[in-house]
């Protein structure tokens, strides 16, 4: 996502801002922790089995035993929302991880070696930035299947260019610095220089982008799920919204609660990434 989170503040008013923002980062972290706890403790937190159907369809929120109501098959909406956190979290983390690993590899090689390698890799990166990500993900998942593994792979593979560009620019800056020259003179092999010497120094902004990537991956998974292309054997928020479409008038609670859950999860990671951004480097501009 090129939507940068520029920090950059100098002067009197900024001190306050920094603090505010940090509070936001902490809030984000707290939201993520809650999300993770819900995901891990789902079997104990959920009042019902998320797949358990019953003849009590369309019970409104507040009904006995169904705090958020039931859906068209009599399944408990709260339990669905609780179990859905697992899918969002797993896809978000795993896809962002995949994207970060690819991004680091491409960016590091490109920035460190430069020349033709850089030229070719950057062209490929550009290619991936130009092809509309969501559209391609939709087509690939529709044709190749929408299991959890496929979702993670597709979202990961389509999300790495930003990290690659960031890592490349950092490597371009670092590769001429004295400590890298020193390592070269000592006869260190490039792989070692890349991973042991330079990478640790440029990791901070990468982590910021990664946390924003998690938010984007959660959003993308939910969008695919909304189109009916989520993992069919798991209860996911996007999938719940997909079925809710046909019942918007009959049962508003089927649409409202999973959507709130998605928004909060994404907000948590965005707040956290934002705070982290400020904390690590006030002048950093991720993206563009």
């Amino acid at each position: 996502m090129a939507a940068s989170a520029p920090a950059a503040t100098v002067g009197a008013a900024a001190v306050w801002g920094q603090l505010m923002r940090q509070r936001r980062g902490l809030l984000g972290l707290a939201m993520i922790v809650v999300l993770a706890l819900v995901a891990i403790l789902a079997p104990w937190l959920a009042p019902h089995d998320p797949f358990s159907t019953s003849r009590n369809a369309f019970l409104p929120p507040g009904s006995a035993g169904h705090l958020l109501g039931t859906d068209h098959l009599g399944r408990d909406v709260l339990s669905g929302v609780i179990y859905g956190s697992r899918v969002s979290l797993i896809v978000g983390l795993a896809a962002a991880f995949t994207a970060t690993v690819i991004g680091i590899l491409v960016g590091a090689v490109s920035g460190f070696f430069g020349g033709l390698v850089d030229e070719i890799l950057m062209r490929i990166t550009e290619l991936f930035q130009i092809i509309p990500r969501f559209v391609l993900a939709l087509i690939v998942v529709a044709f190749f299947g929408s299991g959890l593994f496929n979702l993670i792979l597709v979202i990961g593979i389509l999300s790495w260019p930003q990290t690659a560009r960031l890592v490349r620019s950092q490597f371009l800056r670092h590769r001429t610095l004295p400590y890298v020259d020193a390592a070269r003179v000592l006869g260190m092999r490039p792989v070692r220089i890349i991973f042991r010497e330079i990478l640790p120094n440029v990791l901070a902004p990468v982590i910021v982008v990664a946390s924003l990537d998690i938010a984007q991956a959660i959003l993308l998974e939910a969008s695919l799920g909304f189109f009916g292309l989520g993992d069919p054997n798991l209860r996911s928020w996007g999938g719940m919204l997909n079925t809710a479409q046909g019942y918007v008038q009959r049962a508003w609670w089927m649409s409202v609660f999973p959507g709130v859950a998605i928004s909060l999860a994404v907000l948590g990671f965005n707040l956290f990434g934002d705070g982290l951004n400020d904390a690590t480097d006030p002048r950093l501009r991720s993206g563009s």
């Binding site: 909304f226 919204l241 918007v248 649409s255 959507g259 928004s263």
Partner: peptide, 22 residues
């Protein structure tokens, strides 16, 4: 701004339909 950045547009659309149309 942060909320706008986190709310999925397709869901927002559904909610807008629910409130303003239905």
């Amino acid at each position: 701004a942060l909320a706008g950045y986190s709310i999925p547009e397709f869901w927002l659309g559904q909610i807008l339909i629910l409130v303003f149309a239905v």
